[in-house]
Amino acid sequence: MIDWSVSDSSHNGRVALVTGAARGIGLGIAAWLIAEGWQVVLTDLDRVRGAKAAKVLGDNAWFIGMDVADETQVKTGVAEVLGQFGRLDALVCNAAIADPHNTTLETLSLAYWNRVLAVNLGGPMLLAKHCAPYLRAHGGAIVNLASTRAAQSEPDTEAYAASKGGLLALTHALAVSLGPEIRVNAVSPGWIDARDPSQRRAEPLSETDHAQHPAGRVGTVEDVAAMVAWLLSRNAGFVTGQEFVVDGGMTKKMIYT
């Protein structure tokens, strides 16, 4: 587990932009990359929490507020990153309206549907669009955070499932359009316990929760962060246009009730 209160003071010269990084998986990814020596720019709609997270992560963290569905904010934010650091090597698109449960299809409003797709699918497109020239200059990489719900659903999850399915298609389209200079991949988490540490301690998951996974446990943000960090590394130089499922084996398990 990463101690988010301590960051490595070393710097490998590379700069990463991580969206939705004020909490959960995004924060875990930012912390992991900082531990590997990256300079990380965290973005989030929650400016107060995002600024506090960056302060805790230390000198290699910097925060800017951003609504990824707003092209003006995306364009301005990317310009801020370039103005501050002069380069961009990696983009991690994690920001999302993440609660997969919605109302029934009959009561699903078009406004909510459009907002979910604008954030979860439009956001990664806008970020790729405005980051591409700078990523290309340094042989950079993009990782999109999709979901196992792109392939399987619970009731009343139309907007979320559609957005994540579209994100997988966007990922391979971007990989073909932006290659070979920029690699683009997707990570699809399954059940990840991304709650705040205090909540995890107060309401621990049950043995049944863990045991139903072939890997023997529910996932952690560090499980996802490790995969993202590898995909951004030089070791993944021959990997692009792919989806990597991090779910403890659940999507391969046949379940009969």
Results as ranks from 00 to 15, higher is better:
168 L>T: 10
18 V>C: 09
234 R>D: 15
112 Y>I: 03
133 P>T: 08
247 D>A: 10
160 Y>Q: 11
42 L>V: 06
99 D>N: 15
27 L>R: 15
63 F>A: 04
49 R>W: 03
210 H>D: 14
132 A>S: 10
231 L>N: 00
188 S>T: 09
94 N>V: 07
246 V>H: 05
147 S>V: 14
161 A>H: 12
34 I>C: 14
139 G>C: 10
51 A>E: 15
72 T>C: 08
153 S>L: 10
75 K>W: 04
255 I>P: 12
200 R>W: 06
112 Y>R: 05
46 D>T: 03
68 V>Q: 00
248 G>S: 07
149 R>D: 06
6 V>M: 12
128 A>V: 05
124 P>T: 04
26 G>C: 08
20 G>K: 14
203 E>P: 01
117 L>R: 02
28 G>C: 10
24 G>W: 02
26 G>M: 12
134 Y>P: 02
55 K>I: 09
219 G>Q: 07
162 A>I: 06
21 A>V: 08
113 W>D: 11
233 S>T: 13
115 R>A: 15
108 L>K: 07
43 T>R: 05
109 S>D: 11
14 R>G: 04
66 M>D: 02
164 K>T: 00
56 V>T: 15
221 V>I: 09
202 A>V: 03
161 A>K: 08
217 R>V: 10
221 V>W: 00
103 T>N: 13
127 L>H: 09
217 R>A: 15
111 A>T: 14
196 D>T: 04
113 W>C: 11
97 I>G: 06
221 V>C: 13
227 M>L: 14
109 S>L: 12
119 V>W: 04
239 V>Y: 01
10 S>C: 06
63 F>H: 06
209 D>W: 09
207 E>Y: 02
34 I>F: 13
179 G>K: 08
51 A>L: 11
84 Q>P: 05
74 V>S: 00
242 Q>T: 14
2 I>C: 00
28 G>S: 13
222 E>F: 08
173 A>G: 13
117 L>S: 03
69 A>Y: 03
152 Q>Y: 08
14 R>H: 08
188 S>W: 03
185 N>L: 01
43 T>W: 01
139 G>L: 05
85 F>N: 03
206 S>I: 09
15 V>E: 03
177 S>A: 14
227 M>F: 01
76 T>I: 12
92 V>G: 08
104 T>V: 14
188 S>M: 06
257 T>Q: 13
62 W>S: 03
151 A>P: 00
161 A>F: 00
80 E>S: 13
156 D>A: 12
14 R>L: 12
247 D>W: 10
208 T>I: 06
243 E>V: 11
142 I>M: 09
89 D>V: 01
136 R>P: 05
181 E>M: 06
221 V>S: 00
74 V>W: 02
244 F>Y: 10
203 E>R: 11
224 V>F: 01
189 P>W: 01
32 W>M: 15
34 I>M: 13
19 T>E: 02
123 G>P: 03
153 S>T: 15
178 L>W: 09
100 P>V: 08
144 N>A: 02
175 A>Y: 06
213 H>W: 06
237 G>F: 11
88 L>W: 02
76 T>W: 01
231 L>K: 00
22 A>W: 01
89 D>E: 03
219 G>A: 07
249 G>R: 09
80 E>W: 04
44 D>P: 07
217 R>F: 12
199 Q>H: 07
5 S>K: 13
191 W>I: 08
182 I>W: 00
